[in-house]
């Protein structure tokens, strides 16, 4: 796969179809990977592909100007689609080198939670596709591998218990904003957390401000989050942010029968109005 990936990348650069390729390279001590930006054909050999390519590189699409190639997994492509749906990127300047992906693992070698229920091992949109030669049997499926099984434990709790759970989680938040910064869909030029007049969110790391911050962010991502899980991965204090987003995803799916990041022509339900939209919230 790697050879093919490098070959395709080289071609794109050689034919001047792109000026830069955003991909993965080995980290300095070779133990993991890190994002990289390749601008010349000789740099292509730095590209790597393995189960440590956790990053969603579509994050960088907005700040890299010109014609750009991007190495993307199925989940990453979903966020590219979501960005297109929101008119944030121009598809014409982007070449997607999509990779068939079985699963990614964390630094301890554990398969990422999101990969267990992945539906897009082969990305849904691409310019180039690099297929895997090995058969897709890497993940042993478990009973718990249903799309929303990660929510079961929380949904079983009573509302006060759930509130208590999240309060405990938000208490830990240090407001480093890594969740926002790593999120491809958190692209607001001025984040609500930065606004001072009016100040919607208390800026210091206190339970009150942290709660507002995390809930506002989850709401803003409702119907938009494509579940790349990056926010949870980068959270230094292990707040299970993916569960928040997954819950919103589930609600949106139930109400609007909509899954974000699959169809670039579709409008996300919360920015669209239809007369037959569910109205249960007005009572």
């Amino acid at each position: 796969m790697l050879e093919q990936l490098r070959k395709k990348a080289k071609e794109l650069l050689k034919n001047k179809e792109v000026e830069v390729i955003i991909g993965y390279q080995k980290s300095n001590n070779n133990s993991f990977t890190t994002p990289c930006f390749i601008e010349s054909e000789d740099g292509v050999d730095r590209l790597t592909w393995d189960e440590h390519c956790v990053y969603n590189l579509s994050l960088y699409l907005k700040e890299v100007k010109g014609k750009v190639g991007i190495v993307a997994k199925g989940c990453d492509v979903k966020s590219i689609v979501a960005l297109m749906q929101e008119n944030q990127i121009d598809r014409d300047r982007i070449k997607i080198i999509a990779l068939e992906c079985q699963a990614q693992v964390d630094q301890e070698g554990q398969i990422l939670e999101k990969c267990r229920t992945c539906q897009v091992h082969i990305p849904g949109m691409y310019d180039e596709l690099v297929r895997s030669k090995t058969s897709p049997s890497k993940i042993e499926s478990k009973e718990s591998d249903k799309e929303y099984s990660v929510l079961e434990e929380l949904e079983a709790k009573s509302t006060p218990e759930r509130w208590q759970f999240w309060q405990r989680q938000f208490e830990k938040c240090i407001r480093c904003y890594a969740c926002r910064q790593v999120c491809p869909l958190c692209y607001c030029s001025e984040c609500i957390s930065e606004k001072t007049a009016p100040q919607w969110i208390l800026p210091s790391p206190s339970l009150k401000g942290n709660t507002t911050w995390n809930i506002v962010r989850a709401f803003h991502l409702a119907g938009r989050c494509i579940d790349c899980g990056e926010c949870e991965r980068v959270c230094p204090v292990n707040i299970p942010l993916r569960r928040l987003n997954k819950k919103m995803e589930k609600e949106i799916q139930t109400m609007f029968n909509y899954v974000p990041g699959l169809d670039s022509k579709k409008k996300p339900p919360l920015v669209d109005f239809r007369v037959d939209d569910p109205q249960e919230f007005i009572r």
Partner: peptide
């Protein structure tokens, strides 16, 4: 990605902000 992790978790980074929150003047990382 311009997050604050390296700054906040650094033992020598000491930059702070000051703001008024609900009757208190607070300083924070």
């Amino acid at each position: 990605i311009s997050c604050g992790i390296c700054r906040y978790l650094c033992p020598t980074c000491h930059c702070f902000d000051i703001a008024d929150e609900e009757g208190e003047r607070v300083r924070f990382w």
